[in-house]
Write a protein that binds this DNA or RNA. Structure first.
Lengths: 266, 266
DNA sequence: TACACGCGTCTCTTGTAAGAGACAATCGCT
DNA sequence: AGCGATTGTCTCTTACAAGAGACGCGTGTA
Protein backbone atom coordinates (compact mmCIF):
# COMPACT_ATOMS: atom_id res chain seq x y z
CA UNK A 1 0.00 0.00 0.00
CA UNK A 2 1.90 2.95 -1.27
CA UNK A 3 -0.20 5.62 0.35
CA UNK A 4 1.06 5.12 3.83
CA UNK A 5 0.97 8.83 4.37
CA UNK A 6 -2.19 9.81 2.63
CA UNK A 7 -2.61 12.49 5.23
CA UNK A 8 -1.69 15.14 2.72
CA UNK A 9 -4.15 13.67 0.32
CA UNK A 10 -6.55 16.56 0.29
CA UNK A 11 -4.48 19.57 -0.65
CA UNK A 12 -6.35 19.24 -3.91
CA UNK A 13 -8.61 21.84 -2.39
CA UNK A 14 -7.81 24.01 -5.39
CA UNK A 15 -5.20 26.47 -4.20
CA UNK A 16 -6.57 28.74 -1.54
CA UNK A 17 -6.67 30.07 1.99
CA UNK A 18 -6.54 27.68 4.96
CA UNK A 19 -3.57 27.39 7.27
CA UNK A 20 -4.67 29.58 10.19
CA UNK A 21 -1.64 27.93 11.75
CA UNK A 22 -1.82 24.76 13.75
CA UNK A 23 -4.35 25.49 16.40
CA UNK A 24 -7.75 24.03 17.05
CA UNK A 25 -9.60 22.16 14.39
CA UNK A 26 -13.33 21.96 14.08
CA UNK A 27 -14.81 18.58 14.97
CA UNK A 28 -16.78 18.38 11.76
CA UNK A 29 -13.64 18.82 9.71
CA UNK A 30 -11.90 16.14 11.64
CA UNK A 31 -14.80 13.86 10.84
CA UNK A 32 -14.73 14.70 7.17
CA UNK A 33 -11.04 13.94 7.11
CA UNK A 34 -11.61 10.66 8.84
CA UNK A 35 -14.12 9.62 6.23
CA UNK A 36 -11.78 10.62 3.43
CA UNK A 37 -8.98 8.73 5.06
CA UNK A 38 -11.01 5.57 5.37
CA UNK A 39 -12.11 5.94 1.79
CA UNK A 40 -8.55 6.38 0.61
CA UNK A 41 -7.36 3.31 2.46
CA UNK A 42 -10.37 1.15 1.73
CA UNK A 43 -10.05 -0.86 4.91
CA UNK A 44 -10.76 -0.77 8.59
CA UNK A 45 -8.30 1.35 10.54
CA UNK A 46 -7.32 1.32 14.17
CA UNK A 47 -8.23 4.42 16.10
CA UNK A 48 -4.67 5.16 17.03
CA UNK A 49 -3.56 4.78 13.46
CA UNK A 50 -6.38 7.03 12.38
CA UNK A 51 -5.29 9.74 14.78
CA UNK A 52 -1.74 9.45 13.56
CA UNK A 53 -2.74 9.39 9.93
CA UNK A 54 -4.63 12.65 10.22
CA UNK A 55 -2.37 14.02 12.85
CA UNK A 56 -5.27 14.61 15.08
CA UNK A 57 -4.96 14.41 18.84
CA UNK A 58 -5.73 10.98 20.17
CA UNK A 59 -8.26 12.07 22.73
CA UNK A 60 -10.29 13.97 20.18
CA UNK A 61 -10.17 11.09 17.76
CA UNK A 62 -11.50 8.67 20.34
CA UNK A 63 -14.38 10.98 21.13
CA UNK A 64 -15.34 11.57 17.55
CA UNK A 65 -15.09 7.94 16.58
CA UNK A 66 -17.32 6.99 19.48
CA UNK A 67 -19.92 9.51 18.41
CA UNK A 68 -19.81 8.36 14.83
CA UNK A 69 -20.10 4.75 15.80
CA UNK A 70 -23.10 5.52 17.97
CA UNK A 71 -24.62 7.35 15.05
CA UNK A 72 -23.98 4.38 12.79
CA UNK A 73 -21.81 6.28 10.33
CA UNK A 74 -18.89 4.14 11.37
CA UNK A 75 -18.73 0.61 12.67
CA UNK A 76 -16.18 -1.17 14.76
CA UNK A 77 -14.71 -3.76 12.46
CA UNK A 78 -14.97 -7.39 13.42
CA UNK A 79 -11.67 -8.09 15.08
CA UNK A 80 -11.68 -5.40 17.70
CA UNK A 81 -10.43 -1.89 17.66
CA UNK A 82 -10.60 -0.97 14.05
CA UNK A 83 -13.24 1.21 12.45
CA UNK A 84 -14.68 1.41 9.01
CA UNK A 85 -17.72 2.82 7.31
CA UNK A 86 -21.06 1.98 8.87
CA UNK A 87 -24.43 0.86 7.70
CA UNK A 88 -25.89 4.32 7.80
CA UNK A 89 -23.53 5.52 5.15
CA UNK A 90 -24.70 2.69 2.99
CA UNK A 91 -28.32 3.67 3.56
CA UNK A 92 -27.64 7.30 2.79
CA UNK A 93 -25.72 6.27 -0.28
CA UNK A 94 -28.60 4.22 -1.55
CA UNK A 95 -30.94 7.10 -0.92
CA UNK A 96 -28.67 9.30 -2.99
CA UNK A 97 -28.77 6.80 -5.79
CA UNK A 98 -32.51 6.50 -5.68
CA UNK A 99 -32.85 10.27 -5.92
CA UNK A 100 -30.48 10.51 -8.82
CA UNK A 101 -31.84 9.44 -12.17
CA UNK A 102 -28.60 9.82 -13.99
CA UNK A 103 -26.71 7.62 -11.60
CA UNK A 104 -29.41 4.99 -11.41
CA UNK A 105 -29.84 4.70 -15.12
CA UNK A 106 -26.13 5.10 -15.72
CA UNK A 107 -25.37 2.09 -13.58
CA UNK A 108 -27.76 0.00 -15.60
CA UNK A 109 -26.36 1.17 -18.90
CA UNK A 110 -22.85 0.42 -17.75
CA UNK A 111 -23.81 -3.03 -16.57
CA UNK A 112 -25.51 -4.00 -19.79
CA UNK A 113 -22.78 -2.40 -21.86
CA UNK A 114 -20.14 -4.50 -20.20
CA UNK A 115 -22.28 -7.59 -20.41
CA UNK A 116 -22.86 -7.06 -24.12
CA UNK A 117 -19.31 -6.18 -25.04
CA UNK A 118 -17.48 -8.28 -22.50
CA UNK A 119 -15.25 -5.32 -21.76
CA UNK A 120 -14.82 -3.41 -18.53
CA UNK A 121 -17.15 -0.46 -18.48
CA UNK A 122 -17.38 2.53 -16.18
CA UNK A 123 -19.47 5.52 -15.30
CA UNK A 124 -17.38 8.52 -14.33
CA UNK A 125 -18.14 11.91 -12.87
CA UNK A 126 -16.43 15.00 -11.62
CA UNK A 127 -16.28 14.86 -7.86
CA UNK A 128 -14.99 17.97 -6.11
CA UNK A 129 -12.71 18.69 -9.00
CA UNK A 130 -11.43 15.18 -9.49
CA UNK A 131 -12.20 12.41 -11.89
CA UNK A 132 -14.07 9.68 -10.06
CA UNK A 133 -15.17 6.21 -11.07
CA UNK A 134 -18.71 6.15 -9.84
CA UNK A 135 -19.65 2.71 -11.02
CA UNK A 136 -17.79 0.04 -12.85
CA UNK A 137 -18.66 -3.33 -14.20
CA UNK A 138 -15.83 -5.72 -14.97
CA UNK A 139 -15.53 -7.34 -18.36
CA UNK A 140 -15.00 -11.05 -18.74
CA UNK A 141 -11.39 -10.98 -19.77
CA UNK A 142 -9.05 -13.36 -18.02
CA UNK A 143 -6.85 -10.58 -16.68
CA UNK A 144 -9.04 -8.30 -14.70
CA UNK A 145 -8.65 -4.67 -15.64
CA UNK A 146 -9.42 -3.46 -12.19
CA UNK A 147 -10.45 -0.01 -11.13
CA UNK A 148 -12.27 0.31 -7.89
CA UNK A 149 -15.42 2.34 -7.61
CA UNK A 150 -14.77 5.62 -5.90
CA UNK A 151 -11.22 5.74 -7.10
CA UNK A 152 -10.06 9.22 -7.83
CA UNK A 153 -7.60 9.83 -10.62
CA UNK A 154 -6.02 12.99 -12.00
CA UNK A 155 -8.05 14.30 -14.91
CA UNK A 156 -5.22 14.36 -17.47
CA UNK A 157 -4.60 10.64 -17.10
CA UNK A 158 -7.90 9.65 -18.61
CA UNK A 159 -10.06 9.94 -21.67
CA UNK A 160 -13.04 10.78 -19.54
CA UNK A 161 -11.14 13.61 -17.95
CA UNK A 162 -10.85 15.28 -21.33
CA UNK A 163 -14.56 15.06 -21.89
CA UNK A 164 -15.58 16.16 -18.43
CA UNK A 165 -13.73 19.42 -18.88
CA UNK A 166 -15.12 20.09 -22.34
CA UNK A 167 -16.78 23.45 -22.41
CA UNK A 168 -14.74 24.98 -19.63
CA UNK A 169 -12.46 27.86 -20.48
CA UNK A 170 -8.73 27.66 -20.11
CA UNK A 171 -8.71 29.39 -16.76
CA UNK A 172 -11.08 26.95 -15.17
CA UNK A 173 -9.21 24.00 -16.58
CA UNK A 174 -5.91 25.24 -15.21
CA UNK A 175 -7.53 25.69 -11.85
CA UNK A 176 -8.56 22.05 -11.76
CA UNK A 177 -5.20 20.59 -12.67
CA UNK A 178 -2.11 20.61 -10.51
CA UNK A 179 1.41 20.06 -11.76
CA UNK A 180 1.40 16.61 -10.23
CA UNK A 181 -1.69 15.69 -12.17
CA UNK A 182 0.23 16.17 -15.40
CA UNK A 183 2.79 13.54 -14.50
CA UNK A 184 1.73 10.06 -15.59
CA UNK A 185 2.31 7.00 -13.42
CA UNK A 186 5.27 6.01 -15.57
CA UNK A 187 6.90 9.39 -15.14
CA UNK A 188 6.09 10.96 -18.48
CA UNK A 189 4.79 14.48 -18.33
CA UNK A 190 1.82 15.78 -20.28
CA UNK A 191 2.08 19.31 -21.60
CA UNK A 192 -0.77 21.43 -20.34
CA UNK A 193 -1.32 22.81 -23.82
CA UNK A 194 -1.63 19.35 -25.30
CA UNK A 195 -4.14 18.48 -22.65
CA UNK A 196 -6.20 21.56 -23.40
CA UNK A 197 -6.01 20.79 -27.11
CA UNK A 198 -7.27 17.30 -26.43
CA UNK A 199 -10.18 18.72 -24.51
CA UNK A 200 -11.08 20.93 -27.41
CA UNK A 201 -10.94 18.04 -29.84
CA UNK A 202 -12.98 15.82 -27.57
CA UNK A 203 -15.59 18.53 -27.31
CA UNK A 204 -15.95 18.69 -31.06
CA UNK A 205 -15.83 15.00 -31.91
CA UNK A 206 -18.02 13.97 -29.03
CA UNK A 207 -15.76 11.20 -27.79
CA UNK A 208 -12.22 10.57 -26.68
CA UNK A 209 -9.77 7.71 -26.90
CA UNK A 210 -6.51 7.46 -25.02
CA UNK A 211 -3.88 4.75 -25.19
CA UNK A 212 -1.44 3.62 -22.55
CA UNK A 213 -1.86 6.56 -20.24
CA UNK A 214 -2.55 5.13 -16.79
CA UNK A 215 -0.89 1.89 -17.73
CA UNK A 216 0.81 0.50 -20.78
CA UNK A 217 -1.67 -2.23 -21.54
CA UNK A 218 -4.98 -0.50 -21.89
CA UNK A 219 -6.83 1.83 -24.12
CA UNK A 220 -9.67 3.92 -22.85
CA UNK A 221 -12.75 4.91 -24.87
CA UNK A 222 -15.02 7.55 -23.43
CA UNK A 223 -18.24 9.29 -24.42
CA UNK A 224 -19.96 12.21 -22.72
CA UNK A 225 -23.27 12.19 -20.92
CA UNK A 226 -25.02 15.54 -20.98
CA UNK A 227 -27.29 16.86 -18.25
CA UNK A 228 -28.12 19.92 -20.33
CA UNK A 229 -27.03 20.94 -23.80
CA UNK A 230 -23.30 21.48 -23.59
CA UNK A 231 -23.00 20.50 -19.96
CA UNK A 232 -21.12 17.25 -19.50
CA UNK A 233 -22.39 15.67 -16.33
CA UNK A 234 -20.67 12.32 -16.61
CA UNK A 235 -18.94 10.01 -19.01
CA UNK A 236 -19.30 6.38 -19.87
CA UNK A 237 -16.18 4.57 -20.81
CA UNK A 238 -14.77 1.26 -21.86
CA UNK A 239 -11.35 0.01 -20.86
CA UNK A 240 -9.92 -2.39 -23.42
CA UNK A 241 -6.56 -4.02 -24.17
CA UNK A 242 -4.30 -1.64 -25.99
CA UNK A 243 -3.93 -3.99 -28.93
CA UNK A 244 -7.64 -4.03 -29.70
CA UNK A 245 -8.05 -3.75 -33.46
CA UNK A 246 -9.10 -0.56 -35.19
CA UNK A 247 -12.29 -2.20 -36.35
CA UNK A 248 -13.37 -3.50 -33.02
CA UNK A 249 -12.48 -0.24 -31.37
CA UNK A 250 -14.69 1.51 -33.85
CA UNK A 251 -17.58 -0.80 -33.18
CA UNK A 252 -17.23 -0.47 -29.45
CA UNK A 253 -17.07 3.28 -29.75
CA UNK A 254 -20.30 3.34 -31.68
CA UNK A 255 -22.17 1.28 -29.11
CA UNK A 256 -20.68 3.30 -26.31
CA UNK A 257 -21.65 6.64 -27.82
CA UNK A 258 -25.12 5.39 -28.49
CA UNK A 259 -25.64 4.40 -24.89
CA UNK A 260 -24.11 7.58 -23.54
CA UNK A 261 -26.42 9.57 -25.76
CA UNK A 262 -29.42 7.67 -24.49
CA UNK A 263 -28.44 8.54 -20.95
CA UNK A 264 -28.13 12.17 -21.84
CA UNK A 265 -31.77 12.78 -22.61
CA UNK A 266 -32.51 12.82 -18.91
CA UNK B 1 -46.29 13.06 3.42
CA UNK B 2 -47.38 12.30 6.91
CA UNK B 3 -44.15 12.98 8.67
CA UNK B 4 -44.21 16.71 8.42
CA UNK B 5 -42.75 17.01 11.89
CA UNK B 6 -40.23 14.26 11.97
CA UNK B 7 -38.12 16.53 14.11
CA UNK B 8 -38.73 14.37 17.13
CA UNK B 9 -37.75 11.36 15.13
CA UNK B 10 -34.69 10.44 17.12
CA UNK B 11 -35.87 10.09 20.69
CA UNK B 12 -35.43 6.41 19.94
CA UNK B 13 -32.09 6.91 21.59
CA UNK B 14 -33.13 4.26 24.08
CA UNK B 15 -34.17 6.08 27.20
CA UNK B 16 -31.33 7.99 28.74
CA UNK B 17 -29.64 11.21 29.69
CA UNK B 18 -29.58 14.15 27.23
CA UNK B 19 -31.45 17.36 27.84
CA UNK B 20 -28.75 19.52 29.42
CA UNK B 21 -31.35 22.17 28.75
CA UNK B 22 -31.69 23.97 25.51
CA UNK B 23 -28.38 25.60 25.05
CA UNK B 24 -25.68 25.04 22.52
CA UNK B 25 -25.58 22.01 20.34
CA UNK B 26 -22.48 20.47 18.88
CA UNK B 27 -22.01 20.99 15.17
CA UNK B 28 -21.44 17.34 14.50
CA UNK B 29 -24.74 16.44 16.12
CA UNK B 30 -26.52 19.00 14.04
CA UNK B 31 -25.01 17.40 10.99
CA UNK B 32 -26.04 13.93 12.05
CA UNK B 33 -29.56 15.18 12.58
CA UNK B 34 -29.58 16.79 9.18
CA UNK B 35 -28.62 13.54 7.54
CA UNK B 36 -31.29 11.67 9.47
CA UNK B 37 -33.83 14.26 8.52
CA UNK B 38 -33.01 14.02 4.84
CA UNK B 39 -33.14 10.27 5.08
CA UNK B 40 -36.52 10.37 6.77
CA UNK B 41 -37.97 12.67 4.15
CA UNK B 42 -36.30 11.08 1.16
CA UNK B 43 -36.20 14.29 -0.84
CA UNK B 44 -34.28 17.49 -1.25
CA UNK B 45 -35.05 20.03 1.46
CA UNK B 46 -34.69 23.80 1.51
CA UNK B 47 -32.17 25.13 3.98
CA UNK B 48 -34.74 27.18 5.82
CA UNK B 49 -37.05 24.22 6.06
CA UNK B 50 -34.18 22.11 7.30
CA UNK B 51 -33.42 24.57 10.06
CA UNK B 52 -37.04 24.68 11.03
CA UNK B 53 -37.42 20.93 10.89
CA UNK B 54 -34.56 20.37 13.30
CA UNK B 55 -35.18 23.52 15.17
CA UNK B 56 -31.70 24.59 14.61
CA UNK B 57 -30.74 28.23 14.28
CA UNK B 58 -30.78 29.41 10.72
CA UNK B 59 -27.30 30.88 10.76
CA UNK B 60 -25.76 27.67 12.00
CA UNK B 61 -27.66 25.64 9.49
CA UNK B 62 -26.44 27.73 6.60
CA UNK B 63 -22.87 27.36 7.74
CA UNK B 64 -23.04 23.64 8.21
CA UNK B 65 -24.82 23.04 4.94
CA UNK B 66 -22.19 25.04 3.12
CA UNK B 67 -19.43 22.99 4.67
CA UNK B 68 -21.13 19.73 3.87
CA UNK B 69 -21.77 20.76 0.29
CA UNK B 70 -18.14 21.70 -0.13
CA UNK B 71 -17.19 18.34 1.29
CA UNK B 72 -19.53 16.61 -1.14
CA UNK B 73 -21.63 14.94 1.54
CA UNK B 74 -24.55 17.04 0.44
CA UNK B 75 -25.46 18.49 -2.92
CA UNK B 76 -27.57 21.44 -3.87
CA UNK B 77 -30.51 19.91 -5.65
CA UNK B 78 -31.15 20.94 -9.22
CA UNK B 79 -33.74 23.65 -8.85
CA UNK B 80 -31.95 25.99 -6.50
CA UNK B 81 -31.80 26.16 -2.76
CA UNK B 82 -32.61 22.67 -1.74
CA UNK B 83 -30.11 20.15 -0.47
CA UNK B 84 -29.97 16.41 -0.52
CA UNK B 85 -27.41 13.69 -0.12
CA UNK B 86 -24.25 14.05 -2.14
CA UNK B 87 -22.08 11.85 -4.26
CA UNK B 88 -19.59 11.29 -1.51
CA UNK B 89 -22.14 9.54 0.61
CA UNK B 90 -22.81 7.26 -2.30
CA UNK B 91 -19.13 6.50 -2.64
CA UNK B 92 -18.73 5.82 1.05
CA UNK B 93 -21.80 3.65 0.96
CA UNK B 94 -20.43 1.59 -1.86
CA UNK B 95 -17.17 1.22 -0.01
CA UNK B 96 -19.11 -0.06 2.96
CA UNK B 97 -20.81 -2.58 0.79
CA UNK B 98 -17.60 -3.77 -0.77
CA UNK B 99 -16.10 -4.29 2.64
CA UNK B 100 -19.08 -6.21 3.91
CA UNK B 101 -19.38 -9.76 2.67
CA UNK B 102 -22.71 -10.40 4.28
CA UNK B 103 -24.32 -7.40 2.69
CA UNK B 104 -22.80 -7.99 -0.70
CA UNK B 105 -23.77 -11.60 -0.84
CA UNK B 106 -27.08 -10.93 0.84
CA UNK B 107 -28.09 -8.53 -1.87
CA UNK B 108 -27.40 -11.13 -4.50
CA UNK B 109 -29.32 -13.80 -2.68
CA UNK B 110 -32.27 -11.48 -2.26
CA UNK B 111 -32.23 -10.54 -5.90
CA UNK B 112 -32.17 -14.09 -7.15
CA UNK B 113 -34.70 -15.19 -4.56
CA UNK B 114 -37.19 -12.63 -5.74
CA UNK B 115 -36.46 -13.42 -9.35
CA UNK B 116 -37.01 -17.10 -8.78
CA UNK B 117 -40.12 -16.80 -6.65
CA UNK B 118 -41.61 -13.69 -8.18
CA UNK B 119 -42.27 -12.40 -4.68
CA UNK B 120 -40.89 -9.30 -3.00
CA UNK B 121 -37.81 -10.21 -1.05
CA UNK B 122 -35.79 -8.27 1.49
CA UNK B 123 -32.62 -8.31 3.49
CA UNK B 124 -33.07 -6.84 6.96
CA UNK B 125 -30.74 -5.89 9.76
CA UNK B 126 -30.74 -4.30 13.14
CA UNK B 127 -29.65 -0.69 12.78
CA UNK B 128 -29.11 1.20 16.01
CA UNK B 129 -31.83 -0.77 17.69
CA UNK B 130 -34.34 -0.61 14.90
CA UNK B 131 -35.42 -2.97 12.21
CA UNK B 132 -34.12 -1.76 8.88
CA UNK B 133 -34.72 -2.91 5.34
CA UNK B 134 -31.24 -2.95 3.94
CA UNK B 135 -32.01 -4.19 0.48
CA UNK B 136 -35.18 -5.14 -1.23
CA UNK B 137 -36.06 -6.54 -4.57
CA UNK B 138 -39.64 -6.16 -5.77
CA UNK B 139 -41.59 -9.17 -6.93
CA UNK B 140 -43.48 -9.18 -10.18
CA UNK B 141 -46.98 -8.95 -8.79
CA UNK B 142 -49.27 -6.37 -10.35
CA UNK B 143 -49.76 -4.53 -7.07
CA UNK B 144 -46.39 -3.52 -5.85
CA UNK B 145 -45.77 -4.43 -2.25
CA UNK B 146 -43.49 -1.53 -1.68
CA UNK B 147 -41.05 -1.01 1.11
CA UNK B 148 -38.26 1.40 0.54
CA UNK B 149 -34.70 0.49 1.35
CA UNK B 150 -33.54 2.10 4.52
CA UNK B 151 -37.02 2.20 5.96
CA UNK B 152 -37.07 1.72 9.68
CA UNK B 153 -39.93 -0.10 11.31
CA UNK B 154 -40.68 -1.03 14.93
CA UNK B 155 -39.41 -4.51 15.66
CA UNK B 156 -42.73 -5.96 16.88
CA UNK B 157 -44.43 -5.22 13.60
CA UNK B 158 -42.40 -7.69 11.64
CA UNK B 159 -41.44 -11.33 11.38
CA UNK B 160 -37.81 -10.37 10.97
CA UNK B 161 -37.97 -8.38 14.16
CA UNK B 162 -38.75 -11.54 16.07
CA UNK B 163 -35.77 -13.32 14.62
CA UNK B 164 -33.35 -10.46 15.04
CA UNK B 165 -33.97 -10.42 18.76
CA UNK B 166 -33.66 -14.17 19.15
CA UNK B 167 -31.07 -14.98 21.74
CA UNK B 168 -31.38 -11.75 23.67
CA UNK B 169 -32.63 -11.94 27.23
CA UNK B 170 -35.84 -10.32 28.32
CA UNK B 171 -34.16 -7.24 29.70
CA UNK B 172 -32.40 -6.43 26.47
CA UNK B 173 -35.52 -6.97 24.46
CA UNK B 174 -37.53 -4.65 26.66
CA UNK B 175 -34.84 -2.05 26.27
CA UNK B 176 -35.19 -2.13 22.50
CA UNK B 177 -38.93 -1.77 22.36
CA UNK B 178 -40.92 1.30 23.31
CA UNK B 179 -44.60 1.36 24.12
CA UNK B 180 -45.30 2.97 20.76
CA UNK B 181 -43.57 0.14 18.97
CA UNK B 182 -46.16 -2.27 20.33
CA UNK B 183 -49.03 -0.45 18.68
CA UNK B 184 -49.68 -1.63 15.14
CA UNK B 185 -50.54 0.75 12.32
CA UNK B 186 -54.20 -0.21 12.59
CA UNK B 187 -54.29 0.58 16.29
CA UNK B 188 -54.15 -2.92 17.72
CA UNK B 189 -51.71 -3.39 20.56
CA UNK B 190 -49.32 -6.30 20.89
CA UNK B 191 -48.74 -7.62 24.38
CA UNK B 192 -45.08 -7.51 25.27
CA UNK B 193 -45.28 -11.05 26.62
CA UNK B 194 -46.74 -12.36 23.39
CA UNK B 195 -43.94 -10.68 21.51
CA UNK B 196 -41.31 -12.23 23.73
CA UNK B 197 -42.98 -15.62 23.36
CA UNK B 198 -42.87 -15.23 19.60
CA UNK B 199 -39.19 -14.48 19.78
CA UNK B 200 -38.59 -17.63 21.75
CA UNK B 201 -40.54 -19.71 19.27
CA UNK B 202 -38.78 -18.14 16.32
CA UNK B 203 -35.46 -18.91 17.94
CA UNK B 204 -36.34 -22.58 18.24
CA UNK B 205 -38.02 -23.15 14.89
CA UNK B 206 -35.51 -21.11 12.95
CA UNK B 207 -38.04 -19.08 11.05
CA UNK B 208 -41.00 -16.80 11.60
CA UNK B 209 -44.23 -16.03 9.79
CA UNK B 210 -46.53 -13.15 10.54
CA UNK B 211 -49.84 -12.28 8.92
CA UNK B 212 -51.50 -8.92 8.52
CA UNK B 213 -49.31 -7.04 10.94
CA UNK B 214 -48.05 -3.95 9.13
CA UNK B 215 -50.96 -4.10 6.75
CA UNK B 216 -53.98 -6.32 6.27
CA UNK B 217 -53.01 -7.72 2.89
CA UNK B 218 -49.61 -9.26 3.38
CA UNK B 219 -47.92 -12.11 5.11
CA UNK B 220 -44.27 -11.99 5.97
CA UNK B 221 -41.92 -14.98 5.99
CA UNK B 222 -38.51 -14.54 7.54
CA UNK B 223 -35.43 -16.64 8.14
CA UNK B 224 -32.33 -15.78 10.15
CA UNK B 225 -28.84 -15.21 8.85
CA UNK B 226 -26.16 -16.02 11.40
CA UNK B 227 -22.80 -14.30 11.63
CA UNK B 228 -21.72 -16.68 14.36
CA UNK B 229 -23.46 -19.63 15.97
CA UNK B 230 -26.46 -18.19 17.75
CA UNK B 231 -25.84 -14.63 16.65
CA UNK B 232 -28.50 -13.40 14.23
CA UNK B 233 -26.88 -10.76 12.07
CA UNK B 234 -29.63 -10.28 9.55
CA UNK B 235 -32.76 -11.83 8.15
CA UNK B 236 -34.00 -12.58 4.71
CA UNK B 237 -37.67 -12.31 4.18
CA UNK B 238 -40.44 -12.66 1.65
CA UNK B 239 -43.52 -10.49 1.58
CA UNK B 240 -46.47 -12.28 0.02
CA UNK B 241 -50.22 -11.76 -0.29
CA UNK B 242 -51.97 -12.82 2.87
CA UNK B 243 -54.10 -15.36 1.02
CA UNK B 244 -51.14 -17.34 -0.23
CA UNK B 245 -51.94 -21.03 0.17
CA UNK B 246 -50.45 -23.15 2.92
CA UNK B 247 -48.65 -25.25 0.37
CA UNK B 248 -47.04 -22.42 -1.47
CA UNK B 249 -46.12 -20.73 1.77
CA UNK B 250 -44.41 -23.91 2.82
CA UNK B 251 -42.47 -24.12 -0.40
CA UNK B 252 -41.40 -20.53 -0.25
CA UNK B 253 -40.33 -20.95 3.34
CA UNK B 254 -38.13 -23.87 2.41
CA UNK B 255 -36.36 -21.98 -0.34
CA UNK B 256 -36.01 -18.95 1.86
CA UNK B 257 -34.50 -20.86 4.76
CA UNK B 258 -32.12 -22.59 2.43
CA UNK B 259 -30.81 -19.35 1.05
CA UNK B 260 -30.59 -17.72 4.44
CA UNK B 261 -28.61 -20.69 5.69
CA UNK B 262 -26.25 -20.42 2.76
CA UNK B 263 -25.60 -16.81 3.63
CA UNK B 264 -24.89 -17.72 7.22
CA UNK B 265 -21.74 -19.69 6.56
CA UNK B 266 -19.85 -16.48 6.10
C1' DT C 1 12.21 -7.93 35.47
C1' DA C 2 12.40 -3.88 33.36
C1' DC C 3 11.42 -0.98 29.47
C1' DA C 4 9.07 0.81 25.53
C1' DC C 5 4.87 1.02 23.27
C1' DG C 6 -0.10 1.16 22.11
C1' DC C 7 -4.58 1.30 23.81
C1' DG C 8 -8.73 3.41 26.25
C1' DT C 9 -10.33 6.70 29.74
C1' DC C 10 -10.32 11.04 32.39
C1' DT C 11 -9.52 15.88 33.80
C1' DC C 12 -8.79 20.65 33.08
C1' DT C 13 -8.04 25.00 30.03
C1' DT C 14 -8.84 28.04 26.64
C1' DG C 15 -9.57 29.15 21.75
C1' DT C 16 -13.43 29.28 19.06
C1' DA C 17 -17.64 27.60 16.94
C1' DA C 18 -22.62 27.82 17.89
C1' DG C 19 -26.00 30.81 18.15
C1' DA C 20 -28.79 35.44 18.54
C1' DG C 21 -30.04 38.83 15.88
C1' DA C 22 -29.73 42.66 12.60
C1' DC C 23 -29.66 43.52 7.55
C1' DA C 24 -30.70 43.90 2.60
C1' DA C 25 -32.66 41.56 -1.19
C1' DT C 26 -36.49 38.71 -3.27
C1' DC C 27 -40.63 36.70 -3.68
C1' DG C 28 -45.62 36.29 -3.56
C1' DC C 29 -49.93 38.06 -2.41
C1' DT C 30 -53.54 41.53 -2.38
C1' DA D 1 -47.23 49.81 -4.49
C1' DG D 2 -47.42 47.94 0.16
C1' DC D 3 -46.90 44.11 3.32
C1' DG D 4 -45.26 39.66 5.30
C1' DA D 5 -42.54 35.86 4.75
C1' DT D 6 -38.20 33.82 3.23
C1' DT D 7 -33.55 33.83 1.80
C1' DG D 8 -28.61 34.49 2.18
C1' DT D 9 -24.91 37.14 4.60
C1' DC D 10 -22.60 39.30 8.46
C1' DT D 11 -21.20 40.62 13.27
C1' DC D 12 -20.45 39.81 18.03
C1' DT D 13 -20.67 37.03 22.58
C1' DT D 14 -19.97 33.34 25.45
C1' DA D 15 -20.82 28.45 26.41
C1' DC D 16 -18.42 24.67 25.52
C1' DA D 17 -15.78 21.32 22.50
C1' DA D 18 -11.04 20.50 21.01
C1' DG D 19 -6.96 19.49 22.68
C1' DA D 20 -2.83 18.63 26.05
C1' DG D 21 -1.44 15.47 28.95
C1' DA D 22 -1.51 12.34 32.81
C1' DC D 23 -2.91 7.61 34.22
C1' DG D 24 -3.42 2.49 34.32
C1' DC D 25 -3.51 -1.51 31.77
C1' DG D 26 -2.03 -5.12 28.70
C1' DT D 27 1.76 -6.88 25.41
C1' DG D 28 5.89 -7.75 23.30
C1' DT D 29 10.97 -7.98 23.51
C1' DA D 30 15.61 -7.46 25.25
Amino acid sequence: MQDGETLNAWPTEGADEERPANSREKGLNRVLNMLEFLHANQRAIGIGELAKGLNAPRSTTYTLVRELVEAGLLEMAGDGNRVYFGKKLYLYGMAYMRGNDLLRRGRQEVDTLSRETGETSELCMLQSGRYTIVHSSPGNRPFRISSATGLQIPLPWTASGRLLLAGLDRGRIEAMVTQDDLVLPDGRKIALDDFIDDIGKARVTGYCVTSGLVDAYTKCLAAPVFSAPGKVEATMCLVVPIDTSEDRTGELLTVLRERAARLSIS
